[in-house]
Design a protein around this nucleic acid. Structure first.
Length: 570
RNA sequence: CGGGGUGUAGCGCAGCCUGGUAGCGCAACUGCUUUGGGAGCAGUGGGUCGGGAGUUCGAAUCUCUCCACCCCGACCA
């Protein structure tokens, strides 16, 4: 492709509303333009990258035996009512009516549609297992779209769904998909990790998220230093401290702590560590009463863990100021378990504390020297409530945890029969009996992969595409071609030869200054660059430079194609 | 949804406090020069100052209202 035929819509200035590198660079490099909050136009250069991702995804899904389908963006409400999600889904589900007043939604995902498709098309166990996939636009009316393409409202997703007669069959396909995902992200040249994920309220046996590691990632992931264990921190289990509880060796004392509300204030005021303070959180229960959650002061509540506990409201809701006043008889900041006559759930670490500080259920007062079993009853319910922190023991018993940030680009999980049961998707088995199919689902955020790749691969000059994602593999830059007929001939000849050798080449035939070409090509991230100049031609040489290099290499012109073949990961 | 902020040329911004009919840089276009790291000079075009209402002789500027966009929050009592 020639730049004269393929305009590069690059901009020199950083857009004021872009926060993270990928968002800034996608706009500066002319990949996308914002249309409205969370909605983007894709320009020609961006579309080439999208197509690269899509074709790799398509190949690997086909290799995994999945069949491509295409389902509508607009979906009838009836199907969502069948699954129960018309009610469950909040305002994130964009709903609309047609001219006859019939209700529809814009698909945020396609479980209902695929289940409807499968129950009509799949009748016999002989047709199982079967996997379908599509690459399609989704719409989710996010509370707060941000970071450009990373969290937009409309985005492209590859979603696959599998149907099975047995759980064993589901597991087999799940494993195959796991492998396909590993292949896809490896081929895309990304530094990624599969991590154990929360299955959500759906249940099911297994779920993995695939994360691209990047500091700007929205998710925190816990890794073991001693094994392959990796889990989303939402899911990572915090084990009870292995050391036994210290003996009670201080007396219970009530102290005045005027206006010291936060754990930090208290620990500084009483000159103890935050780990010596007990944090008491009041949350709503299912039946609208209040439950106390106890945590060590230096730990944070993991809401996902908390809301899974029987009786605790889901989604987790903190008690109102009024509730606090009524149950603890004081303001937030001075609550404690002593004399608190409600259900109390203690975190594993909190239950191992001794000689600690807690609120006295009286404004501006705290207790010090508190001990379980002596000053208050031993907790009757001890649970894993907290977020894991760096240095915690790995739940699999090998090594300790470190925490890194990741961008979720893929998610696979075993759905079981949630949709097939609700929507009566069944087949006849060998005995002619109806059996509900069991399902798996597997997603990849195609557009998000691109943003994630940029987060992971960029420098001050611009994007650095992995070979597999690059819109063009090679930038062919003639220096002042319009002034030298000889140079023009050599460039045109090489351009043709490179194409014949199977490379995607961007030939910069614009009449612009060299520095302008260099900057543009670096900004849009073309991984390999060939520069043709009159001086080099005198010696039969061209210059080669990878986007990641800091120096040029002089290569004899007749060897350049071979040189590229050995340097490019096709 | 709560809090904060911003809307002025395609992009980035100044002007607003203290009202007097709109400006800078980049980009675009023309010409000349220049040509190995986002060129120089000269010139040209482009703006319902987010929308509406109000105050005023006069509003980008003051008041009200609506809208859009951005940031923070919606777990640490």
């Amino acid at each position: 492709m020639r730049t004269s035929q393929f305009p590069l819509n690059t901009v020199k200035e950083t857009p004021s509303d872009a926060e993270i590198a990928s968002h800034q660079l996608m706009i500066r490099a002319g990949l996308v333009r914002k249309l409205a909050a969370g909605l983007y136009n894709w320009l020609p250069l961006g579309v080439r990258i999208l197509q690269k991702v899509e074709s790799i995804v398509r190949e690997e899904m086909n290799n995994a035996g999945a069949l491509e389908v295409l389902m509508p963006v607009v979906q009838p409400a009836e199907l969502w009512e069948e699954s129960g999600r018309w009610e469950q889904y909040g305002p994130e589900l964009a709903r609309l009516k047609d001219r006859h007043g019939r209700e529809f939604c814009l698909g945020p995902t396609h479980e209902e549609i695929i289940t409807e498709l499968a129950r009509n098309e799949v009748k016999s166990y002989k047709q199982l297992p079967v996997s379908y996939y599509q690459i399609q636009t989704k719409f989710r009316d996010e509370i707060r779209p941000r970071f450009g393409i990373m969290r937009s409202r409309e985005f492209i997703m590859k979603d696959a769904y599998s149907f099975h007669l047995t759980d064993e069959s589901l597991q087999e396909t799940y494993d195959r998909m796991f492998q396909a995902y590993t292949n896809i992200f490896s081929r895309l040249g990304l530094n990624f990790r599969p991590v154990i994920a929360d299955t959500g309220s759906i249940g099911g046996n297994a779920s993995h998220e695939f994360h691209v590691l990047a500091d700007s990632g929205e998710d925190a992931i816990a890794f073991s230093t001693g094994s392959d264990y990796a889990a989303n921190v939402e899911k990572a289990e915090a084990l009870a401290p292995s050391a036994p509880r210290t003996d009670a060796n201080t007396n219970l004392t009530k102290v005045s702590t005027p206006n010291k509300r936060s754990i930090e204030d208290i620990s500084a005021f009483l000159n103890v560590t935050t780990a010596d303070c007990l944090k008491t959180l009041l949350v709503k229960s299912d039946d609208d009463t209040v439950v106390a959650l106890l945590l060590r002061g230096d730990h944070e509540l993991n809401e996902i863990k908390a809301e899974k506990i029987e009786g605790v409201s889901s989604p987790l809701t903190m008690a109102s100021d009024e509730d606090i006043k009524n149950t603890a008889n004081c303001n937030a900041g001075f609550i404690g378990p002593i004399g608190l006559d409600i259900r109390i759930i203690a975190d594993r670490s909190a239950a191992k504390m001794a000689n600690f500080v807690c609120g006295a259920n009286e404004n501006d007062m705290h207790y010090t020297g508190v001990n379980w079993g002596r000053d208050l009853a031993e907790s009757t319910q001890i649970e894993d409530l907290r977020q894991v922190v760096e240095g915690d023991a790995s739940p699999d018993g090998n090594g300790t945890l470190t925490i890194a940030r990741g961008i979720e680009v893929g998610h696979i999980f075993q759905l079981g029969t949630k949709y097939s049961e609700a929507m009566k998707a069944s087949v006849l088995d060998e005995n002619g009996k109806n059996q509900t199919m069991t399902m798996g689902c597997y997603g990849i955020g195609v557009t998000r992969v691109i943003a994630a790749a940029i987060e992971q691969n960029h420098d001050a000059k611009g994007i650095i595409w992995p070979d597999a994602l690059a819109p063009f593999q090679i930038a062919l830059l003639p220096m002042n071609m319009h002034k030298s007929e000889r140079l023009k001939d050599a460039a045109e000849k090489l351009y043709i030869e490179l194409q014949e050798a199977g490379f995607d080449v961007l030939f910069d035939d614009r009449k612009v200054r060299p520095g302008f070409m260099f900057s543009d090509m670096e900004l849009i991230g073309i991984p390999h660059r060939i520069v043709l100049g009159d001086k080099g031609l005198d010696n039969g040489m061209v210059e080669y430079r990878a986007r990641t290099d800091s120096d040029n290499q002089d290569i004899p012109i007749e060897q350049i194609i071979q040189h590229l073949k050995t340097n490019i990961n096709q």
